[in-house]
């Protein structure tokens, strides 16, 4: 009779789950909440600061055009290219800044690790889809903009099971 009790237990478990909360995250309406503001790197201690590795953000007033991020990316994805920018900074004599092709980027964050001037961060923005390949190439001007990310949903664990809310 082990078979029969096993079958009844399975059915019972199945019926019990009809009363448990749904776990699904209804994505376009709800968005996950992330830690902090994004992945950053602290070159003085040599340790990163936790956060989502999303789209980059570039601080023009800190970038010196040293190409370290581009060199770091060379072995990984070759997504970063240094391009001319019109604006002039005293600390950026060559006036070159990274331009990132998100069609190639693997979001490993090694470029952020490589930047010694806090100029490149990664933000929480992960919705990068466009209709063309060209739209995935972010120029320094685009990278300067801090994205607005609406995050509200977290995993909540209650007696009736876990859910996003």
């Amino acid at each position: 009779m082990g078979t029969a009790t096993g079958i009844i237990r399975a059915l019972n478990s199945g019926i019990k789950h009809l009363a448990i909360k749904r776990f699904t995250l209804r994505y376009p309406e709800e968005k996950l909440k992330f830690v902090g503001d994004g992945y950053q790197f602290d070159p003085s201690t040599g340790v990163g600061i936790a956060g989502l590795k999303g789209r980059h953000m570039l601080f023009h007033d800190k970038c010196t055009g040293c190409q370290l991020c581009s060199i770091a990316c060379e072995g990984v994805a070759e997504a970063i290219a240094m391009v001319k920018v019109p604006e002039e900074h005293k600390h950026n004599k060559k006036a070159i800044m990274p331009q990132i092709d998100y069609g190639k980027c693997v979001f490993c964050g090694l470029c952020v690790d490589a930047c010694p001037f806090y100029a490149l961060y990664m933000t929480n923005d992960y919705e990068l889809s466009t209709f063309s390949k060209e739209g995935l190439i972010y120029t320094p001007a685009q990278l300067q903009v801090k994205p607005y990310v609406a995050q509200d949903s977290e995993i909540i664990i209650t007696d009736r099971g876990a859910s996003h809310g």
Partner: peptide
């Protein structure tokens, strides 16, 4: 819908 409920998901929505 029932399978979705049993499997803790939403189903056709």
């Amino acid at each position: 819908k029932m399978m979705a409920k049993l499997q803790l998901r939403v189903g056709p929505f």
